[in-house]
């Protein structure tokens, strides 16, 4: 199994940690986890995909974006705008032949980056994210401390405004959208599996990870040829 390496990257707002897998040359994948609770439920799964990709000869990075992972930016000061800037600047530093790989709301970070292509699993809009945050608040019947308190996360009004209008990249260039078979929305390809991002306890799906890594690696090869 491919070993991971711990690294950092600098962006105009500071320094963040990132994991690296596989080769540093050739096509490089920037992987993006979803926002908030779904990141915890899909991190191990995404790392499994990246290890598999390395075995296919494709290197990748999994950056902490400001306000996520080990970042010192606190949740209440996190903005999608800054996360997009950090992603864009990281892509610039990595060079050419950079591909975005995202799960769910991870597709919202790469909109301003110059990428050779984008591969998205079950992409969602910022409005979808907000609706699920609201739903979690209603279901928990929590006494609302303020209207920016979401199931234990305090989000800034700026972050909520950023999300309200955020959609995945809709410009030109190669884009492949994958979804689960249980999802009725359109997709380039669908796979039968359970949605790990909604699991009440974090889990992994190594079989699906292998299938998706295979899909991503073939797709990148077709983009490069």
């Amino acid at each position: 199994m491919t070993a991971l390496r711990f690294d950092t990257y600098d962006w105009s707002g500071g320094r963040e940690a990132m994991l690296r897998f596989g080769r540093d040359a050739g096509p490089i994948v920037i992987a993006a986890l979803p926002l908030f609770a779904e990141a915890n439920r899909t991190r191990q799964f995404l790392v499994t995909i990246l290890r598999e990709l390395a075995d296919h000869g494709i290197g990748s990075v999994l950056p902490d974006l400001p306000g996520t992972g080990e970042s010192i930016v606190v949740t209440g000061e996190t903005r999608l705008r800054d996360q997009r800037t950090a992603y864009t600047e990281l892509a610039q530093q990595l060079g050419r032949n950079i591909y975005g790989l995202s799960i769910r709301s991870g597709a919202l970070f790469d909109t301003d980056a110059a990428l050779a292509g984008r591969w998205q699993l079950s992409a969602q809009t910022g409005e979808d994210v907000l609706r699920e945050l609201d739903r979690a608040r209603v279901a928990s019947r929590s006494a609302r401390a303020s209207d920016t308190d979401y199931a234990g996360n305090t989000l800034s009004r700026e972050m909520l405004a950023d999300l309200r209008h955020a959609t995945p990249y809709a410009g030109t260039g190669p884009l492949r959208g994958a979804r689960l078979e249980s999802d009725p929305r359109d997709a380039d390809v669908k796979y039968a599996a359970s949605p790990l991002w909604r699991r009440s306890e974090p889990d992994n799906d190594t079989v699906l990870a292998q299938i998706l890594a295979n899909d991503v690696s073939h797709w990148i090869a077709s983009c490069e040829s």
């Binding site: 609706r131 699920e132 739903r135 279901a139 928990s140 019947r141 999802d183 909604r198």
Partner: peptide, 14 residues
């Protein structure tokens, strides 16, 4: 309660 939110949202989608 968090799982309730997920169940209902997944039902909406499917």
């Amino acid at each position: 309660s968090m799982a309730v939110a997920s169940v209902l949202t997944e039902l909406e989608d499917r």
